[in-house]
Design a protein around this nucleic acid. Sequence first.
RNA 1: GCCCCGGUAGCUCAGCUGGAUAGAGCAACUGACUUCUAAUCAGUAGGUCGCAGGUUCGAAUCCUGCUCGGGGUACCA
Length: 685
Amino acid sequence: MQILSQIRLRFVPVLESLFTSKGLAATKEQIDAALAMIRPAQNPQFGDYQANFAMPLAKPLGLKPIEIAQRVVAEVELSGLCSDISIAGPGFINLKLADEFLCQQANQAFHDSIPIALDRAGEVQVDRLGISAPASIENVVVDFSSPNVAKPMHVGHIRSTVIGDSLAKVCRYLGHQVTTDNHLGDWGTQFGMIIYGFRHFGDPSAYQKTPVPELSRIYRYVRRLMDLLEKLRDSPKWEQALSTAKQRLDTCQAELDSVETAGDKAELKVARKNIADAQQQIKELEEMLSKAQLQLRLAAQDETLSRDLVQHADLHEAVLAETSKLHAGDPENVTLWKEILPHCHDEIDRVYRRLHVSFDHCFGESHYHDRLAPLVSLLQKQGLITVSDGARCIFLENFDAPMIVQKRDGAFLYATTDLATIQYRMEHWQPNRVLYVVDHRQSEHFQKLFAVAQRMGYQDVHLVHVSFGTVMGNDGKPFKTREGDTVGLEGLIDDAVTKALEVVAKLDDAKVGGPEFSAEQRREIAEVVGVGALKYGDLSQNRTSDYRFDFDQMVALDGNTATYLQYSFARANGIFARAERTPDSIRTADTSIQLTNEAERTLLLTLIRFQDTLEEVLVDYRPNLLCNYLFELTQEFFRFYNRPDCRVVGAEPALLASRLAICDLMARTIKTGLALLGIQVVAKM
RNA sequence: GCCCCGGUAGCUCAGCUGGAUAGAGCAACUGACUUCUAAUCAGUAGGUCGCAGGUUCGAAUCCUGCUCGGGGUACCA
């Protein structure tokens, strides 16, 4: 149930009458702006909700804030909703929800066990908990994860996968029509690399036995060769740049000396900055060079590698040639691609199974291949294309560089595919909204993409780039292994689960009556805890900022972590056994939640804000707000749980039923909230 | 050069469509296990919200300038 909108609705007549009494007609925007200032109280001492519109309305209405507040308090009709309304300070209006209303809303949630599916297959189902249908049902496409299937998934994929999955689930839960689509990279240069590598560096018997690791090895080897060749090629350029930079430093130094004697402050500052820039550049170049030289020296010691570097000196061009042959429909390359692709899918599917992430569609780039040429003709017909330097470009206002849809050599680019994808989705799914959960570095690409889509005539669809920051390592730089490689996602999951298993075992061993779990149970719990920790560590961050990937903190299992939330579920569950009841036994029509003290009241107040929180999540596509909410809810639960006057077991029957119902509602809300984050729970921990 | 994002407690970060005394977690310190599982709870301490102006009844939040850091910037994705 929506609490905020119920409260806000009651204020509309008062606000309108305030305007009309001054001979003004309130616009919808003015009313909405005022209503938006009704929100949960920042501090419990101000009540449950607060309205802050009296101050900003003072000027347009020509009244003192306090007069506005007084009139509102006198006239607003809040019966059945609030038990107290008061004015504080210059004109803050503080509201307290009526206990009966609180109980009634909580009971409604408690008695609503209608299952809601969070995925199209219906594999994940949660209780509805009194959630009301949206004012208008939107047709939403969520485009997320989108790894390149030719290479193993790495840390970089975690954010898109986890954030996109969560947003899709929240949309579904709130009643929107959702299509999830994993826009796989299955058609690009990486496949040219694999095809080339398969022919020249492949080990047929290894491929027969274990195709996936062999393909992965081939990819990595080609990648490495290409990197080394690039370094061989660019080293002289860097040397050149280095000597230029050194000269520049000398010039700057001389400038500084002459400015210093002249004594102009502004010029002095510029001169110093130039020196700092030059020094920085020198440092960077020297680092690049020394790294490159080290790697080249190491490569020189490897006979195979040295030989291949010579024999495949034109690797870059060769790979591009294989890619364009594939695109041109070369039978051999297409056959090989078809042979290899399923193994690549197996590889990523294993990770998705582990993460419990599924998609309605996995239409990769290859899916749109046949649409690219006709699309470019269409763009041409629409007069959007300008040929520049032989490439077909779309020039846009406010952008220096155009969007290139066809290269000089005739090949298409990801911009082309992305446009074709919009076209396909509009034709087949007619979405109102498409969310692209992709990292922030591509924001300019999406700005251009959306601008072009507009000009193509797709004006009714809301295209949104849900961007997110980079995952950093402990050194504050993009997360890499010590060797400088990207960190594999699967290994990361394994590490999280291993760590979780240690903790689960340790705590189980420490139990008063001795360990209660078998080795198998411990492993199952550790899997849920470890994967949950990994996901929650990501989701609880504000998506727009870069964040530091701190493994120890993530699986520390206390503080604001998934484990803390999972634990609260287990504890709420555990009470039933102690009370010798089951959740089913109290979920009967005659069970009713009652309020007997403040801790219960605060807990219920938090519980009934579930839907308002989920709607807030969708305003800016921010799952971290749901994390914050669940963390707060869990804290309230443990406060309730630890209070001597909130004992559940041993309470007299009506109170026992009421408190068990509160525990049940709490457990189901946590379970549902975590499910919306793609995180599971276990009955016991 | 131009464009985008960020700088909040010792550390990691919330808070940013303006609201009352700026919050968590970790780390530190004090207290609560014959207890509905102590993976918990209660409490203490910790801040010129990068700097300087401005708008406003009110600014961490909006605007301008500066500074520091990250990213992007024509045929990779």
